[in-house]
Design a binder for these strands. Sequence first.
RNA 1: GGUCCCAUCGUCUAAUGGUUAGGACAUCACCCUUUCACGGUGGUAAUAUGGGUUCGAGUCCCGUUGGGAUCACCA
Length: 475
Amino acid sequence: MKVRTRFAPSPTGYMHIGNLRTALYEYLLAKSAGGDFILRIEDTDQKRYVEGATEIIYDTLKTVGLHWDEGPDIGGAHGPYVQSERKDLYAPYAHKLVELGGAHYCFCGEREEQTDEDGNEIICKFEDPCKKIPLEEARRRIAAGEPYVVRQTINKTGKSKYEDKVYGIIEIDYDELDEGVLLKSDGFPTYNFANVIDDHLMGITHVVRGNEYLPSTPKYNLMYDTFGWQRPVYVHLPTVMKDAQHKLSKRNGDASFQDLVAKGYLPEAIINYIALLGWNPGTEEEIFSVSELEKIFSVERLNKSPAIFDSVKLTWMNGMYIRALNAAEFHRLAMPYYADMPAGINLEALSRVLQPRIETLGQIAEQTDFIRALPEYDLALFDNKKMKTDAAVAKAVLPEVRRALAEQSEWTNEALFERLKALAEQLGVKNGQVLYPTRIALSGKETTPGGATELAVVLGQAETLLRLDKALARL
RNA sequence: GGUCCCAUCGUCUAAUGGUUAGGACAUCACCCUUUCACGGUGGUAAUAUGGGUUCGAGUCCCGUUGGGAUCACCA
């Protein structure tokens, strides 16, 4: 049988990392078996719907390369793929389930809590008095327009048992299971009902989801069994944590996929990193594209303990991806960050020095601040023991540097480096005693992306001479 | 609280019941060097805890501790 998985997010805002990882594993599970990956939007809770959230889901999946075979926008043989458009389809199944004895009508109302003759509190989900209402009477009340919900009926004796691909055999007493609402009074199904109906109707073979569903899965199995449907294969995933105590969540403003991209992380690096959060290939390699992952992914290597999202390692990995980019591609990605760069700056040269030095595109700003405006710097910056330089050396050497560079016609790193090396030899000083003061004069910073001659190339001849003059005026 | 789940370096993780417990990030040292990076070499660092089972336990069993999840007309 062809493997079919689905990603079924609810459109409630930004796409967070845990969600994306779930989508990735669902995609990889399907693709590694030559199966289909389906996208379904679960919007049965109209109160939580966020405008534009569906588009974010589409965009995110597309930019990381998780292409769905069926979905709201492209259709498919099992549509529609948005639950609100499937609304009318659920009620008949709910009524059918009542007939089969797997559910009952409940008229308790929103409050859910009532008191019996002895004054004891009755909570429907534990022991629903409505279960005792004869079916005929219930149907009469519904026909008369009385509001109702369909509530799952659970025989509270015995143990439920199922196998999860990650966690193994899970056993839970039926007594622990609540008789939850399946069909709400507004006619919409709850997640608990809709996911079962939709997964079955859409032919989903493997249900992949967060492990928070581990305890409620027996309730879904009860429904599959009552309907006489085959249960899917379950793959529950461990949680992605922010730290040892807290789950990564969008509520407390933890990084979403969009946030990371905005900070200058590459989608390829993000997806690579999260693929390894809870799964490993069994080898020591760790740089993988999505298409490589499709070939080597296996559920057996999924981990069951929670993993902490480590942005430090993500940053390292992003640096690996940045360095692996070809120069033209890096330059194209860096361009937006050069928007406020002054005229005359050699941007290609700037990209060349930046590429091996940054780990996120967002670091471009701090790396290039001295280009926009030469900082006010202390003359003590010219001091460097290892290079044997100080302000006095700078004062002696810089006029010669200025003269040499003013005459220079070929403005490339190689030519400038050779020229200044020759100058050092001619002056009888170490290379560093020429290069170090020059770099300080050009940047006003202790550390810079690239050396003196590389900065000169980036700044251009005119600006280079101007900055040397400024330094000389102060020395 | 009931129930379910989890537990190897700081972090992500590897290890047919038999390895000096391996790798990566981070960190430290050194090398390279035109500052800083990149790159290279090396170091520090882990089986939560107590009992079993076994010739032998990170691995199997039980307890303890710690952590997480769940108990909505949310998903």
